[in-house]
Each structure stands twice: as C-alpha cells, then as structure tokens.
Design a protein around this nucleic acid. Sequence first.
RNA 1: CGGAGUGUAGCUCAGGUGGCAGAGCACGUGCCUUGGGAGCACGGGGUCGCAGGUUCAAGUCCUGCCACUCCGACCA
Length: 566
Amino acid sequence: MRASRFFMPTLKETPSEAEVPSHIYLLRAGFIRKLAAGIYDFLPLGLRVLKKIENIIRKHMDEAGALELLLPILTPAELWKETGRWDVYGKELFRLKDRHDRDFALGPTHEETITDLVRKNIRSYKDLPFNFYQIQTKFRDEARPRYGLIRGREFIMKDAYSFDVSEEMAIKSYEIMKETYHRIFKELGLDYLMVEADVGAIGGKFSHEFVVLAANGEAHIVYCDNCGYAANVEAAKYEFELDKLPPEEEKPLEKVYTPDVKSVEEVAKFLGVDPKKIVKTLIYILDDGTAVAVVIRGDRELNETKLLNYFNALDAHLATQEELEKLGLIEGFVGPIGLDIPVYADKSVEDLHNFVVGANEKDYHYINVNIPRDFKPVEFVDFSTAREGDPCPNCKSPLKETTGLEVGHIFLLGTKYSEAMKAYFVDRDGREKPIVMGCYGIGVSRLMAAAVEQNHDENGIIWPENIAPFKLHILALNIKDEKIMKTAEEIYEKAKELGIEVLFDDRDLSPGAKFKDADLIGIPYRIVVGKTLKEGKVEFQKRATGEKELIELSKIDEMLKELAGG
RNA sequence: CGGAGUGUAGCUCAGGUGGCAGAGCACGUGCCUUGGGAGCACGGGGUCGCAGGUUCAAGUCCUGCCACUCCGACCA
C-alpha cells in the first residue's frame, strides 16, 4: 500500500476528548474517529487490525469445532419478553419501534435469538451438540461510554453459544472453549490472566473472565503467584479462617457514650480499639423493597455482587438516611442488637469477640458485644470484597491485586434460557429435556484498545506482530531524490511479491514528519531509505526496541525473505 | 442517574468591564528545503452548539435546550 494513496489522517495534537493511551493513539494515528459518544468509525488502518483479530479468533473457533453463522442485529421484543430480559435489561437495551408500532431491540447479546433458532430446528439428542458463533456489531446504551473503544455503545463482539444434552457434556464444551480462548489470547500476543468471575445478570452456573493486564482496566482482580489462583474481586472467595483474631474471654456488654462518633475510623480512634473489632451494620434495601441488615468487620468492604447473589436479587442499595429514619434507625449508630429486621453476618464476624457495634441510639455504641449472647445472625455468609494481602483460598499465600480489561467472558449457562424459551430435545430415554447451554464472548474492538493499552510508548503504538495493520513500513525520506525513490520502489515491489504486508511512505513530506507518523502508527518493522544509500545501505529498524541495523543493498532480498517467513 | 466542567476555523486554544472574529498548527499556491512533525510570501476557511430574551449593539449578560468530557453510581 502506498501511503500517498492511503487514508491515514494522523494528528499532531491529542484531541481533548481522549484521556487514556489507547484512545489517544488510536485517534492520533488515524485508526478510529468518533461519530458520537461511544460510537466510532473504523478507518482503513483500524479495520485492518480488527480483521486480523477477527481472523485469529475465527481460526481457533473453527478448529474447536464451532460453526460460524450470522444472526440479525434487529430483534423482536417478543423474544426478550420470553426470557424476561425486555424488563430486566433496562435502559441499556436500545429499543425502537417499526412503522406498525411493534417493539424491537438492537441486540446487545444473542442468547434469545440463537436459542430461538435452535429450538425450532433441534428435536433429538442425536442432533446435539452444537457450538455456534458469530462476529458482529453489538449495541448497549451504556450509562457512561468512555475511554474510546474500551466502553462503547456500539462495538464488535465475537459471541458463541454451545448446546449440549447434559451438564456433563456442557462442561466439556465449556472446557474446550476455555482452552480455545487461551490459544486465541496467546496468539494475539497479549499479557492476560484467566480469572474466576461472577455470572452477573446473564445468569448461569459458573464463569471465567479473560483479562488483559492494563493500568486503565476497569476489572479489579486478585491473583496468587504461588498457585496460580486468580479471580475478579467480585467473585474471589474470602478465606476468613486465616484472618481471625485470637480468642478472648467474653466481657460484659456495655453501652458507652460516643458523642458524634460515627465512622469506623472515628469509633476506633475514640475508643482506642483496633478497627477489626468495630463491626459495621449496613442496611440494604433489596429490589423487592425488603430491608436486610448485614454486619461486617470494620476493616472489610462489603461486596454487593455477593450480596445480590445471596439474596437472589437483581438490585440492592444501601438505605438512604430517609429510609433509615423510616426504620427507626440513626445513621452512624446502627447496630444489630434489638433490630427487628433480619441480620446476616459476614464471615469476618464469626468467632469475633468483645467487638463494638452501634446502639441504635444517637451518640451511643455497645462495646464487648458477643455472638450469640447479644444477637443472633440468620447465617454467616461470605460478603467480603477480596483485596491484596488476603490469604489465597487455595494455598493460603497472600493474594496480589491488579487491574485489567475484561476482553473475554465465558459462562456455563445451564438451562436458564432453554427452559424459559422451551428449547427441549428428546433424550435417549424418550423424555423431553431442556438443552444445556454455555455462552462465550470476546470483545473484538475492545481487544484492539487493550492491545494498545499494553503496547505503546511516548511516541505511539507498538503493535504485536500478529495484529499489526502492516508488517513492514518503508520510508523513502526524500521522494525527489531519484536514487532513493528507485531503491525504495524496488524494495516495496519485492516485499509485495513475497506476500509481506507493506506500507510504503512515498508521500512528499519532511523526514521528521515521516518518522513521527511511523512511530505513531506502530508497524513492527521499518526500512528507511535515505542518506545511508550513499554507502549502498538502507536502515532496518524494529519499532518495539528501536534498534537500528544498516543493511547492504545486496542483502535486502535475504532479509525480506526472512521477514516473509517469520 | 447524581456531581463537576466544556462547547469559538479541520485540530489545540485565546478572546477582562457588551462595541470590526483571533493565534499556532493543518489546508491551497509559489519559492526554498529533505535524517526526527523545516523556512518565507500570499491566500481560502466561521450558523462563536441551538432557541429565545435584555440592549442602539451579544462570542461576551439572562433563560431554556442540546452535545461532549471528567468523577461517582451502573455495567454479558
């Protein structure tokens, strides 16, 4: 490709809207442009990268026996109503009406659509298993699109759905996808982790996320260097056994005056006790309106995902001051003793002795509280958010914490969708049974951003070789110099003949501008044809390391062949 | 959805107290120049986000709306 005939509008300055490296460089280097919040054009350079990523995914999905198809983006509301997600999905679902006033949605994911296809065409256990996938644009009306391609409202996703006759078989399909995802992310050349994850609103039995490690990631994960355990903090188990305080003799319960002392820190300081012996009482209002109290040790943070899962709720929020007042409670002094709403306890409170709680009376706390003498929780449950330093649930070593970008997520769905939509098959025993499903997503356009987050320097992008828009960048530094142009043209033609994807900068620009653009765009290998030609040499450079090597003209063929082969 | 902010040339931005619409970069033409975003000269380019109001006069003041960005909540 000749740069003079190519569309790669680069920007010298950072557009004011961009804050993170992937957004900045993808805009500046001419890979994407914004149309509206969270909606982007993919320019020729961007599309080339996208296609590379897609083809790597496609190759491994095909090898794993998955079948590619293409489902409609426009989906009728009836389908969503069958599974209840027309209501549950909420404002994130882009909705529209046709001329007859019928409701439709732009697909944010395709469990309903694929399940409809399968239920209409699968009758017997002999027809199964299947794994279908597609690579397609998805729509989600995000509350807050941000960071360019990282969180868009329109984005490209590979989604796959497996259909099996039993949970045992479905787990096999799931394991195959897990392995396939490892192969895909390895070939993409990214530093990633597979972590245990929460199933979230999509539902299902268990799930794993694939997270590309990046400073600007929205996923918080904990991992263990010792045994390899890794999990999203939402899903990570809290190994409370190793975090217990030593046992103590129970002391008599006492109410103490604590004027205007509310937060854990204030109470700990005022009473001169370890924050681990202050117990917070949090009042949550579940989506059905019921109030529950959760007690948790002062140094732990409650994990709302674990709370939602335990109560099987879709939504819950901390009680507001008004709601507390309605329940007769005083903010800052809420406690479990004598409370008439059910009290659930985090495991961090189990075996805790002589601790402090609010007294449900303004400016008073109880000290020397003990379970079950002073109050009795309904159950001890793991509600804690995992954090750095917590013991690993497998091997007890201290966990480490990091952030990353979720680029893949796999779920063992079970029969949630097949039952809701009556996708049954007749089994060997003549009985009708729901198909057991799994679903597997990869954020294709997000991966492009993730690759840049992980591979850039202060001058621009450094593409991993397998997804770079071109492999070789030839720079002719002065197009008015006939010798330079002739040599550069020859190298360009040879590279093309060898099947190397090559971008030839034959534009009439100053050398500086060409170097700056080349660094910005980030093509892995570069040949510079310029003043060294007087000595019969051209320069060979690697974008990643910046290392330069002078190559004799006679050795160029050899070098290109090596590039083409490698 | 709550809080904060921004909106002026393609981009980055300047335009106290209301009084002729600006700069740098980019773009066009010519000259000159070619190893890290060169130089000179001339030139083109504007619904000052939109609507309404106050005023002799609004980019500037007032009201409403829209868009975008950031923080938070939310997020297969």
